[in-house]
């Protein structure tokens, strides 16, 4: 575990992430007139019903589909040379620089400073059904887990096996996996906060709230 201050400083030095916008599938790409440096946003609205910024259109089998920004940030690069050409699935179309929000910073700090339970192998992970409903209804921080508890379902090759949690007793402080996507072996699934560390965690949160300035 690293020192919080140190991690925070490191984050301050680079207060953003840069993510590539990739072609979701093959097709011919046409960019909108979005310029490098333009502000973009992901899905917004109370029900996430307002779509993100339209970056490009990809046409496959005469079916145009919009490629939308999925994060708030700045269009760092647009690979305009691809305009009008055929691209394979997964080809980068541009880069969005996303400035970390306070919440994201807290989440990153906690990943470094709390006990992280990692994926033993590459697979898709789900919470067991009762935990899953609890997490969805009340939020993950209401769930207390202990060593040996059946917590996950590991899904790969259409087969599902249960996975037990091992580590200190505490509440699930944050969740880092997406049920739809494969998690690599060794990547953290959850971080766990034991009761005695809770005040320390709250300190971190308070500190970020006061110190972190959200970028554009």
């Amino acid at each position: 575990m690293r020192d919080i201050a140190e991690v925070l400083e490191a984050l301050k030095a680079e207060p953003y992430t840069e993510k590539e916008v990739c072609a979701p599938h093959s097709g011919v790409i046409t960019f909108t007139d979005i310029a490098e440096g333009a502000k973009v946003h992901g899905f917004t609205g109370m029900w996430k019903e307002i779509p993100g910024t339209h970056i490009a259109t990809i046409t496959r089998e005469k079916n145009p589909r919009k490629v939308l920004a999925n994060e708030r940030g700045v269009m760092q690069k647009v690979y305009r040379e691809l305009d009008g050409t055929f691209v394979e699935s997964g080809t980068p179309l541009g880069v969005i620089r996303h400035y970390l929000t306070r919440q994201e910073v807290v989440s990153r700090l906690l990943k470094e400073s709390l006990y992280a339970f990692c994926a033993p192998e590459r697979a898709k992970y789900y919470f067991t059904p009762d935990i899953d409903t609890k997490v969805k209804m009340l939020g993950c921080r209401t769930v207390t887990i202990h060593d040996g508890m059946e917590l996950f379902i590991v899904s790969r090759m259409k087969r599902e096996v249960p996975l037990c949690y091992s580590g200190p007793t505490g509440i699930i402080y944050d969740v880092y996996f997406d049920q739809q996507k494969n998690v690599d072996a060794g990547a953290p699934l959850i971080v766990v906060c034991p009761p005695d560390q809770q005040s320390a965690v709250e300190d971190v949160v308070a500190r970020v709230q006061s110190e972190w300035v959200e970028g554009e």
Binding site: P24, H25, S26, G27, R60, E61, N63, F86, E88, S89, G90
Partner: peptide, 19 residues
């Protein structure tokens, strides 16, 4: 040789076939 998003997606395959 082309990379595609899924072997299960007919559109992807036919799009590659044309290309």
């Amino acid at each position: 040789l082309y990379r595609i998003s899924s072997y299960h997606d007919a559109n992807e395959l036919l799009c590659i076939a044309d290309e």
